[in-house]
């Protein structure tokens, strides 16, 4: 038991359970980031709850030494709703994957987003089903050869950022498993956000989809494939930050700043109430254009759990704490002597 007010460290959030992800899995880096961020948030250890569904990512709660609930496939947002509403003082985190969150659990995810439930969702996106050994997921690319698609995937994939923006998530961000500094800062931002925080984390499954994000992480090429969103700053990328993104009509386009100096690059505003621009830049085709990472959106709205409590408190303030006898003995009563 940690004494109150003691400074928490990363070690306080490690459990005695052997971590059972495959060696080399991107999940280790995410776990590391979570264990690094939690002690920095000023939240007592016992006030965290990590909730998950089913899948490799959903083993997360077992490895974080606080309260944890490993639930059933796709339903983590629903469990988190009950937990957060029952005790709004808890800091509730969800570990989930692309299959868990977007396929079997899609409905719960979008509804938790539209309600602005105050929970933080870490969606490990490896674009494959790992725990069931290699079927395509709702984020797998068209044409991908997997166990269940020997001739290639014919489904169109989800863009998770689009889904989150469309469902009204008040905080939407993306990071990459191995970019530990970036990931840590995004998690800290998510923790600080009051409301629903959706963080898509590109995560390498080195067994069933190895190298899916190589173009985003390999030193030589990554700067040409990633653009970091920073509030108030123009969208520039490339090793020498010599390329930028601007809008032509409704389409983002790349500008070579060496040949075309310009002052009309998109300047990122994560607080913009409309998520239209965030939607446009999240649409930039992978490889042909840089993939944005960082915070797409951070806006302030009342939280579901907060409003639920507020309403209950208001009713109690108006009518007083309910008296059981008054309740049972209400309506048309009659006495038999």
């Amino acid at each position: 038991m940690t004494p109150p007010n003691a400074t928490l460290t990363k070690n306080d959030f490690k459990t005695d359970q052997e971590v059972r992800w495959c060696p080399g899995c991107g999940d280790y880096a995410i776990l590391n980031a979570v264990q690094s961020v939690f002690p920095t948030l000023g939240i007592p250890k016992e006030k965290f709850v990590v909730v998950s569904g089913i899948g490799c990512s959903s083993r997360l709660p077992y490895y974080v030494n606080t309260y944890g609930f490993h639930s059933i496939h796709g339903r983590a947002p629903a469990f988190a709703t009950g937990i957060k509403c029952a005790n709004p003082e808890l800091s509730v985190w969800i570990g989930t994957g692309d299959g868990d969150a977007l396929s079997i659990g899609g409905n719960h995810l979008i509804h938790a987003m539209r309600r602005n439930l105050d929970v933080k969702v870490l969606m490990f996106n490896n674009r494959i089903y790992g725990l069931t050994k290699g079927q395509f997921s709702p984020t797998s690319e068209v044409g991908k050869i997997t166990k269940s698609t020997p001739f290639g995937v014919v489904d169109q994939p989800f863009n998770p950022i689009h889904l989150a923006l469309g469902a009204g998530a008040t905080f939407v961000a993306r990071s990459v498993d191995v970019m530990s500094k970036h990931l840590t800062s995004v998690l800290q931002r998510a923790a600080a956000h009051r409301g629903f925080a959706f963080v898509e984390i590109y995560q390498n499954c080195n067994i069933f989809n190895d190298g899916a994000f190589d173009h985003l992480v390999e030193k030589e090429i990554r700067d040409d494939h990633l653009v970091e969103l920073e509030h108030g700053k123009p969208l520039k990328f490339g090793k020498a930050k010599d390329k930028g993104v601007r809008l032509r009509g409704y389409a983002p386009e790349i500008v070579d700043l060496k040949t075309t100096p310009t002052d009309d690059l998109i300047v990122w505003d994560e607080h913009e109430p409309s998520s239209a621009l965030a939607f446009l830049i999240a649409s930039m085709p992978e490889r042909a254009m840089p993939q944005p990472i960082g915070v797409f959106r951070a806006v302030d709205k009342p939280t579901f759990d907060g409003e639920l409590r507020k309403q209950a408190n208001e009713v109690t303030a108006t009518h007083g704490d309910g008296d059981l006898k008054d309740l049972l003995y209400s309506g048309d009563l009659w006495n038999v002597e």
């Binding site: 709850v49 909730v51 609930f69 639930s71 059933i72 339903r75 947002p77 629903a78 469990f79 988190a80 709703t81 009950g82 937990i83 957060k84 509403c85 029952a86 005790n87 808890l90 409905n107 719960h108 509804h111 639920l308 209950a312």
Partner: peptide
């Protein structure tokens, strides 16, 4: 407290989450 959930599954899961809490 009452919660009208998005579906039957969410309703039972939220109820069980609340029990955990």
């Amino acid at each position: 407290l009452t919660f009208q959930a998005e579906d039957e599954i969410a309703a039972v899961c939220a109820a069980l989450g609340a029990s955990f809490a």
